[in-house]
């Protein structure tokens, strides 16, 4: 492994760019996600920012239960994101389906479609909770990431 590659992997933790996917959320989580961009929480101090194309993203933040019409979109956006990538399920619905867990039109949590690295539960999760989750992801806090993909992020 070359030096540049190592440096790149070190830099990965310091600059995580987020692409936000809404798979049918009630916009509660979306507003909370926007809140962490505001001066009060200011996610940019960790080098994070929201991007508008999955090609540029390192992290997919998925909010909302996966409804049937959006299944293909979720798969596509996962494919369109370059490796290494982390998938963050934001809110109760994305984690496990939330109150729509047995709805006829809802598949369930995001992890039924694509592998998820980080769950941030809450309805909606507070901005502090999102920050905490992301701090876990970048290694500022103790990690609770799925072991297989954690190796990818860590190394």
């Amino acid at each position: 492994m070359s030096l540049l590659k190592k440096l790149a992997q070190k830099a990965f933790k310091k600059s995580i760019w987020v692409f936000h996917v809404n798979t049918g959320a009630c916009n509660g989580c979306d507003i909370e996600l926007l809140d962490i961009l505001t001066p009060y929480y200011d996610i940019e101090r960790f080098g994070m920012k929201a991007v508008s194309s999955p090609r540029h993203a390192d992290a997919l933040v998925i909010s909302g239960p996966v409804t049937r019409p959006t299944v293909d979109f979720v798969r596509k956006v996962y494919e369109a994101t370059p490796e290494p990538k982390i998938v963050i399920a934001l809110g109760s619905c994305a984690t496990a389906g939330g109150i729509w867990f047995d709805s006829y039109n809802v598949i369930g949590g995001v992890d039924k479609i694509i592998p998820v690295n980080l769950y941030i539960p809450g309805c909606p999760p507070r901005p502090e909770a999102i920050l905490f989750g992301i701090a876990q992801a970048v290694g500022m806090s103790k990690k609770k990431i799925k072991p297989i993909i954690a190796a990818k992020v860590e190394s």
Partner: peptide, 18 residues
């Protein structure tokens, strides 16, 4: 420089928003 960075390559579809 690019070769040295050893970025992997993959073929994908064009991104139209899913």
């Amino acid at each position: 420089f690019e070769k040295y960075a050893q970025a992997p390559k993959r073929d994908v579809d064009t991104w139209y928003g899913g």
